[in-house]
């Protein structure tokens, strides 16, 4: 039995065609039922639907053999204890800094609101900037408007949310896409099943 951990929402929607090409179709629709374990057309494959930030944890412990997680989540989690063999090139966006439109650059210590605490720390340290990181769980865009922070670090897709709140994207930290992650023990003990799935994904990706 292979268990694949996927998060609801954009990653799930964009992963479906990939899974379908690999011959895996979920029987239930997670948007319509409340089940957290989804059976598929294959007896030997099931999906678990969890929060995006929990995907590396589930796969690390072997609670799921495979998972689909954004590179942003993997960076923040620290994924040395996982294999991440494939870039699925789905749910693409950019991890960026953003600040109020026309705000001048701040010299010295800056305050940054983000949910990517470790990634932001590493990024500002590599730029030689002293940054005080404020951990938020959502609505990052609000922080500069109410004086909580000078800038934010967040995922940017279209940039519309930023614009609507009077912010503009500044520096690109990195391009983000979803990766296929694999539990180390599963890669060894369920090698054939996992390898054939990897090959299938790779084939589909090459054809795109």
């Amino acid at each position: 039995m292979l268990t694949i951990a996927v998060s609801k929402g954009r990653i799930y929607e964009e992963a479906l065609p990939l899974l379908e090409d690999a011959g895996i179709t979920p029987i239930d629709d997670p948007n319509k039922c409340r089940k957290l374990i989804l059976q598929t057309n294959r007896d030997d494959v099931q999906l678990v639907i969890i929060r995006a930030t929990d995907v590396p944890t589930f796969v690390e412990y072997g609670a799921a053999d495979l998972g689909i997680a954004g590179k942003d989540v993997l960076l923040e989690h620290g994924a040395e204890s996982l294999y991440e063999p494939l870039d699925l090139k789905i749910a693409c966006c950019r991890l960026m800094t953003a600040a109020p439109m026309d705000a001048p650059d701040i010299s010295g210590r800056i305050r940054v609101a983000t949910k990517y605490v470790k990634t932001a720390q590493r990024y500002f340290a590599s730029r030689g900037i002293q940054a005080e990181i404020i951990k938020l769980y959502g609505s990052m865009e609000l922080a500069p408007l109410v004086g909580l922070a000078d800038c934010i670090v967040d995922l940017v897709d279209t940039g519309n949310t930023l614009k609507a709140n009077g912010l503009e994207p500044r520096d690109l930290i990195m391009n983000i896409s979803s990766r296929l992650v694999v539990n180390k023990a599963a890669m060894k003990m369920k090698h054939q099943a996992i390898q054939s799935l990897l090959d299938q994904f790779e084939k589909t990706l090459a054809e795109r």
Binding site: A79, E80, L82, Y83, E84, P85, L86, D87, R179, V182
Partner: peptide
């Protein structure tokens, strides 16, 4: 080494 350890092909 870091990339190999994670089998991070990309």
């Amino acid at each position: 080494f870091d990339a190999l350890q994670r089998k991070a092909k990309p």
